[in-house]
Design a protein around this nucleic acid. Sequence first.
DNA 1: TCGAAAATAT
DNA 2: GATATTTTCG
Length: 272
Amino acid sequence: MREEDSNWFARWEEELPSPKELTPLSQTLITPNLAIAFDIQNTPNPKISPLVHTLSSAEFELNSAELGGMAGSSGVGDEPARTQKRPRLVWTPELHKRFVDAVAQLGIKNAVPKTIMQLMSVDGLTRENVASHLQKYRLYLKRMQGFSNSGSVSGTGVDPATDHLFASSPVPAHFLYPGRGNSDHYMPFVPVAAVVGHAPQLQQQYRHFGSPPNGQFEVPFLPRQSQQPAQRMGTSVHSSSSHVLLSYVEELESATAANGRKVLTLFPNGDD
DNA sequence: TCGAAAATAT
DNA sequence: GATATTTTCG
């Protein structure tokens, strides 16, 4: 709890409940290296400014160094950057939203780490990351169920300060009540099956971007070779509006940096 | 692979 | 000290 938190609290609420609602789409986490490579390290975009500020109120600097590991460039077929110490993943409201979105589409039943992860299509996200988050999210949901309430803002003490993040994203109704009959999900569209029922091994979808910094890269680094990105059928769900960058942020705060502490921070890039 | 608990880190 | 995220274990 430092100054950073203070800022967070001060603003997180402002940008949380996005009127955009849940939009199933894919985001991309770009490492600083990539960002730099693409010349998009610092998006002067006013829109994202707030968030960026929030996240790195203290100070965030793109650490291009260190990236050597993953920025191997060798690209295809390499799976080294694995045992490496991954920086702690910071679940931003945006990221969490992706998560909730995925879970919603999959339905609580099929919402397992692996599937969720795949659906999210967030480069750099690991199954464990999701699993961990899911675990916590479930607990959150249980709590919510505890006091059957509107679940919305107007609730009477429905937003424990302990669930800032989770509160940032609206919880699909079906998530809350165990009410059976329809424990599944019902969406107007989006045949998730297609997306989920493929590519058994989506392992590391790391670094290396085969596409030049030219133009735009909606879903640049995704599945490994052979796996074509989009396989949605019928109505596509791509809204292609919110890009996300994942960068390594160095903690300047702790002076006792015995080990370079890096934190993965996700911040939206582009417009939405 | 999933999920819960224990361990760490911040 | 509490919380967030990771790691370990069944």
